[in-house]
Simulated assay, not measured.
Amino acid sequence: MKRLHVAAGVIRRGDGHVLIARRPLDKHQGGLWEFPGGKVEAGETAEAALARELAEELGIAVAASRPLIQVSYDYPDKQVLLDVWEVLGFSGEAYGAEGQTLAWVDPEDLPSYSFPPANRPIVTAARLPNHYLITPDHLAPREMLDGLALALDAGVRLIQLRAPSLDDADYRSLATKVSNMCLGRAKVMLKGPLEWADEFPEAGWHLTVQQLRQHAGQGRPLVPGRWLAASCHDAAEMGMASTLDVDFITVSPILRTATHPEAQPLGWRRAAELLSGFGQPAYLLGGLGPNDLAQALRVGAQGVAAIRALWPQ
């Protein structure tokens, strides 16, 4: 069965809301919501196909777009490759040119809409930012909180509270303060035993490689609706992360780093190979910063994760 190549767009308007459309009842997965787009024709690039489809379906002209995620999915009666682009600029007023119902939705409300199964990673990618801040170690709690306040003011929306030098009690105390500070402004990913998770109902959890191996094959260890992430360094660990149904991963190290000089860097080419066909959001980590975002997007990543390069100076 030939895989159907479809270009789809996560279309954002100025207030950050995302456009979704309801599929006609007489079509495959009819009645469910989708990100607008359509089939890529022979000899056509995904970017060109998306621009054509959005002009035909919505009456808008794409002015700026960039790769977001590729998802391969096998339905019982159809195999699809969803080639998803983020549309950041367009002209015209979107309307249902083919009679379809449209809705502009706050990204955080997307999980409350019913999408085809293949769209689940796209819903996640549409809600995640391009930058994932990991906090530096060996900071006094006051330094950490002051730095995070600056990061929040600078627009950081996803934060991993990493402080391996703290003992358990001090980490949990700091986690409470950080979670309260970030409430409504940024998502916080905590690290540590999953038994702590009930203490921090608003936080997600970032699994270490050791936790990844410990829970592999046992199903998702955190309830749906809370972000679950994992650190990965190779294809085997990425496979484990998929079986645990994580929402996103980090892949590292891409370049050589001062914090882990002994680690052999993957490089951009290997990163692209690892992400090809993975089908879930991934942040690239290790020697990267905001200036590497465009390259990270080109190789299939959600964005970049960093400690020093994203920490306010």
Rank of each mutant, 00 (worst) to 15 (best):
L58P: 02
Q29A: 13
R226L: 08
D153E: 15
G219S: 10
Q29V: 09
Y171K: 01
K78W: 12
K78G: 00
L228D: 14
E86T: 01
I159Q: 01
G43F: 09
E237T: 10
E56L: 01
Y283L: 12
D106N: 04
E56Y: 00
L222K: 10
V209H: 03
E202V: 09
L133N: 03
G204C: 09
V251M: 00
A258C: 00
A197M: 10
S112R: 15
P116Y: 08
V178D: 09
M144V: 13
A235D: 06
P224S: 13
Q211L: 07
T243E: 15
R120N: 02
R66C: 01
V6P: 02
P281I: 14
E199G: 15
L222A: 08
A21E: 14
L207K: 08
H131F: 12
G204T: 11
A258N: 00
L212Q: 06
K2C: 01
Q313D: 02
W268P: 07
L285Y: 13
L145G: 06
R52T: 03
P117Q: 11
G16P: 14
Y113Q: 12
I11F: 07
R308N: 12
K2I: 05
V18Q: 12
P201C: 07
D106K: 04
I254G: 00
F35E: 03
P24T: 10
